[in-house]
Write a protein that binds this DNA or RNA. Structure first.
Length: 230
DNA sequence: GTCCAGGGCCTAC
DNA sequence: GTAGGCCATGGA
């Protein structure tokens, strides 16, 4: 059987993105993702969480708050070592200190240090600007756009690739923008829903992905599993 | 002690 | 254009 025939045969059994959303939403309830007291804090969290467990990011953000550094002007003017030590728990602290400074310099120079000013521009424009900054790739840019700027753009992360290829919805070799386009095409354009959907994916990933036998309790197991979540 | 986490950059081919 | 190495801490 050719792959395309297999897909035709299975097409009715593969859940839609909305079905998966509804299942996870009923299972977890509202996630309220992303945590943060301000759009700026959310943007900083997006950089600090790169390849890092969120619990470590929380420690770093708490330290930034304690030392009164959670402000773009403070970040660019404070002692570099102080900044590095504050964010140390989030790992890659030298790289991330540089990335925070580059982002804050950009935010100050172009938008007076206010995420809210940046959010006034259109999504494509902001995304291009963010991607031009060293240390901000597609996922981080989209985290900032969706959660800090409240623009309707879907965030794709490792969990998204893992979970949706597990159920035969995505192919493993799909590139970031391909996956994002797929979600944009098959979901209503809705900021609140995009936020919640990504939150639900993160929670599912944390709770079940790569955690056999916990994986056997995943709320998505009622759908066909094409491959293991590894 | 070992593995892994919500990435992204740089280099070599 | 892409595979592989590198960056670092903390929890399981």
């Amino acid at each position: 059987m050719k792959p395309c025939d297999r897909r035709k045969r299975d097409i009715k059994r593969i859940p839609t993105l909305m079905e998966i959303y509804n299942t996870l939403s009923q299972f977890y309830g509202p996630t309220g993702w992303w945590p943060g007291d301000s759009p700026f804090e959310i943007a900083i969290g997006a950089i600090l969480t790169q390849n890092t467990a969120w619990t470590n990011v929380e420690k770093a953000i708490e330290k930034l708050k304690t030392e009164n550094l959670l402000n773009p002007y403070k970040i660019i003017h404070c002692d570099r070592l102080q900044l590095e030590q504050a964010i140390r728990p989030s790992g890659y602290f030298r790289q991330k200190a540089e990335r925070l400074i580059i982002f804050c310099e950009f935010l100050i120079e172009k938008y007076g240090g206010k995420i809210e000013n940046m959010a006034q521009r259109n999504t494509t424009y902001i995304r291009k600007e963010l991607l031009n900054l060293k240390g901000i790739g597609p996922e981080t840019a989209d985290d900032i756009l969706l959660y800090a700027c409240e623009h309707s753009i879907f965030v794709v992360d490792a969990y998204t690739k893992r979970i949706f290829s597990r159920h035969g919805i995505l192919n493993e070799d799909m590139k970031y923008e391909e996956i994002q386009n797929y979600f944009h095409k098959h979901l209503p354009k809705d900021v609140h829903m995009y936020k919640e959907y990504h939150g639900l994916i993160v929670w599912t990933g944390k709770d079940y992905c790569r955690k056999t036998p916990k994986c056997s309790q995943c709320p998505l197991n009622k759908y066909p599993i094409i491959k293991d979540c590894f």
